[in-house]
Design a protein around this nucleic acid. Structure first.
Lengths: 223, 223
DNA sequence: CTAGTATTCAATTTATCAATTGAACACAAG
DNA sequence: CTTGTGTTCAATTGATAAATTGAATACTAG
């Protein structure tokens, strides 16, 4: 009974948080924090459809974050009271704080070589069989042409931006280069991660893979 | 570019709100607002399965609301920083204000809360300076140990009968617990009054007092 | 009254989230 | 090394939310 009560309370709190848990609604609230707006002006400025915008506003209204008044054929929405602004500011401070924190952590992580968690050749071989990764060869085109791991595509650091742009989200990327003391794959992994793409480097490079008798290809065909 | 930045911030902002938009996670945060907890203790006290609880905690961690540390085979989670407590309080205030439902629930379950005439933190601070009241912390001993209002003694509901027996007549008793929605102090005040002891509850709980920068103590010493 | 405009409603599809399950991992004690 | 315990992972299922579409209400101006 006492637990029921508590859970009910938390649910009520959660309703309000849910109303805030959507980027578009936050944007709308941000505009409304400046001044009262009609549905029309909000839809235009936010780029939402009228219907969608209207529905978002109704959700905000349902939990009491905004109020509305009808004047003529327009419905004007406004922030319900100052507590809403305070909460928004408080959450915004938190977001900024955590965002900075995230950036700091990422930098720290990527600067420590070991944290890149290199993949072994064996792991890579099985991942390739599963087709669960995209394998990129970061070496210059001529070295790639001369011989590369079977299934790898050539993406130099210069081509990396284009690769990232057309990369299908979700698929993990494995990068390799000349060998364990070559920095090219480190650089590639850092840039990929900076764009939010899950990525690792191969512990070894092409020569070690080749020597291990694992499958390779050249521009002239497979081995 | 400016729009990109804004949208990024809204998204980050929404991620945090999303983490707060779930009753179970709010409950977990409420426990964590009292003190650090292991996954196990949180799972038990919240009634969630280990896996589910762990996953909720990881979501909270992913957006930087909590941090974790591993000690032996236990993983302890704690609130990441005071900004989180502030945001939670702000959200809670908003919820109280907006949801008539919440008030209805409180009235129903914490019967006649107004008649208990809660004390504000400011009033309590001055009363403590005058040494005109006895302050009791009704929370479990571990939460008391992790941090309590300076000058408070720990009297759980189980210990209340003993406390009443040796209480010096005439001195007023102030009880506090986890926060405005915690029922422990209501219960204590009711029992004290039933024994003819003048008693009130503190309007807020320990987290609010701590956030206000008012004096606190832990088992290890003052702040 | 009629036509035009602003807003909302209702229904559908798509995407995202929560809870569950069973297995995997990490550490500690025996 | 083995066993037990605490925590996390991965995969599935069921639930909930977002965006889109087209139609239905208001209201105003003419």
């Amino acid at each position: 009974m006492m637990a029921d009560f508590k859970h009910l309370l938390y649910s009520q709190f959660a309703k309000i948080a849910k109303a805030l848990a959507q980027a578009h609604r936050l944007e709308l609230l941000d505009y409304l924090a400046q001044r009262e707006h009609s549905v029309e002006s909000l839809a235009k400025v936010s780029g939402l459809s009228y219907a969608n915008c209207s529905q978002h506003l109704q959700q905000l209204k349902a939990v009491g974050l905004v109020t509305s008044r009808k004047r003529g054929q327009h419905v004007f929405y406004r922030i319900a009271h100052d507590l809403v602004l305070e909460s928004l500011e408080s959450l915004s401070k938190l977001a900024r704080h955590n965002l900075a924190e995230v950036d700091r952590l990422i930098d720290q992580h990527l600067n420590a070589r070991d944290s890149l968690e290199p993949l072994s050749s064996e792991e890579l071989a099985t991942r390739l069989k599963e087709d669960s990764v995209t394998l990129i060869d970061v070496r210059p085109a001529d070295e790639y042409g001369a011989g590369h791991i079977a299934g790898a595509i050539n993406v130099t650091l210069e081509q990396l931006a284009d690769f990232i742009a057309q990369h299908q989200a979700g698929k993990e990327v494995i990068a390799y280069c000349r060998g364990p003391y070559c920095v090219l794959s480190y650089e590639a992994v850092q840039r990929l991660r900076a764009q939010g793409i899950a990525s690792h480097r191969l512990a070894d490079g092409y020569p070690e893979w080749y020597l291990a008798g694992l499958p390779v290809e050249t521009d002239q065909g497979e081995r």
